[in-house]
Every structure is written in C-alpha cells, then in structure tokens.
Measured scan of single mutants.
Amino acid sequence: SQVHIGNTTFTFDNPEKAQKYAEKYAKKKGLTVQKNGDVWTVE
C-alpha cells in the first residue's frame, strides 16, 4: 500500500496504516485523500 503526498511516496505493509496516515496528514494540512486501489493520494 502506498501514500502519495506531492512528489513523495510512502510505502506501508498494511493498507489500514496507509489509510490512517493519509487521512491524518490530510486533516492536518486541510487537504483531501483520493483512493485508487491500494494507493492513497493526498492533494
């Protein structure tokens, strides 16, 4: 599972961890999370 934030990609061994990280980061920065398969993009 991966989380894309700008030009940075974070890889997680667990989809739940990836989703939590993406949502927490997005909330903190006032951004949105797009999910595509097991990839979350914060923008």
Rank of each mutant, 00 (worst) to 15 (best):
L31P: 03
Q34P: 02
F10P: 02
T8W: 15
Y21I: 05
E16P: 00
N7F: 12
N36H: 11
E43M: 14
V39E: 10
N7D: 11
Q34A: 09
G6A: 07
H4N: 10
V42Q: 00
L31E: 01
G37F: 05
S1A: 14
D38T: 11
T9F: 15
K24V: 09
K27F: 06
F10L: 14
Q2P: 04
E43W: 10
L31F: 12
V33R: 03
G6F: 14
E23Q: 08
A22G: 01
A18T: 00
F10G: 01
I5V: 08
N36F: 12
T41F: 13
N36P: 01
A22Q: 00
T41E: 10
S1T: 11
E43Y: 14
T8D: 09
F12R: 01
G6P: 04
Y25S: 03
K20G: 07
Y25G: 00
E43G: 14
V39G: 11
W40P: 01
E23N: 05
Q2D: 06
Y25R: 02
V3P: 02
K28H: 08
D38N: 14
K17T: 13
K20E: 14
K20C: 00
V42L: 06
F10Y: 13
T41S: 06
L31C: 12
A26I: 02
D13L: 11
K24A: 15
N7T: 10
T11Y: 15
D13N: 09
T32A: 07
W40N: 02
G37V: 04
Q34G: 04
G30K: 04
A26V: 00
N14K: 08
Y21T: 04
T41D: 06
G30P: 02
D38M: 08
E16Q: 12
H4V: 15
K20P: 03
S1G: 13
D38F: 11
I5H: 03
Q2N: 08
E16L: 11
P15N: 07
P15C: 10
G30S: 02
F12H: 03
A26T: 01
V39Y: 07
Y25E: 08
I5W: 03
P15D: 09
V33G: 01
V3A: 02
F12W: 05
N14D: 14
D13W: 10
T11H: 14
T41Q: 07
E16Y: 11
Q34T: 14
E16D: 10
D38K: 06
E16W: 11
W40Q: 00
A18R: 00
N36W: 10
Q2E: 12
Q2H: 12
W40R: 01
K28D: 13
K29D: 05
Y21A: 06
D38E: 10
K35P: 01
E16R: 08
A22S: 02
T9G: 02
F10T: 04
D38H: 08
K29C: 15
V33M: 08
E16C: 12
G30W: 01
H4Y: 08
D13A: 12
A22M: 04
N36T: 09
E16I: 11
Y25H: 06
A26Q: 02
E43N: 11
K35S: 06
Y21Q: 03
D38I: 05
N7E: 09
L31R: 00
K17Q: 13
K28A: 09
K20N: 12
N7W: 11
T8L: 15
K35A: 05
F12S: 04
E43S: 13
V3F: 03
E23I: 07
D13G: 08
P15G: 04
E23L: 12
Q2A: 11
K29H: 15
T9W: 15
A22F: 06
K28G: 07
K20Y: 12
V3I: 04
N36E: 09
F12K: 02
K28R: 07
Y25T: 03
H4E: 05
V42C: 04
H4K: 15
G30Y: 02
G30V: 00
D13I: 09
K27E: 12
Y21N: 00
T9A: 05
T32V: 11
P15R: 04
G37K: 05
T11C: 10
D38A: 08
D38Y: 09
K24E: 15
K24Q: 14
V39K: 08
Q19G: 03
P15S: 07
N7K: 12
Q2F: 14
K24M: 12
T11V: 14
V42A: 01
V33C: 00
N36R: 12
S1P: 14
K20D: 13
T41G: 02
E23H: 06
K17M: 13
K24F: 13
K20M: 12
T11R: 09
I5Q: 02
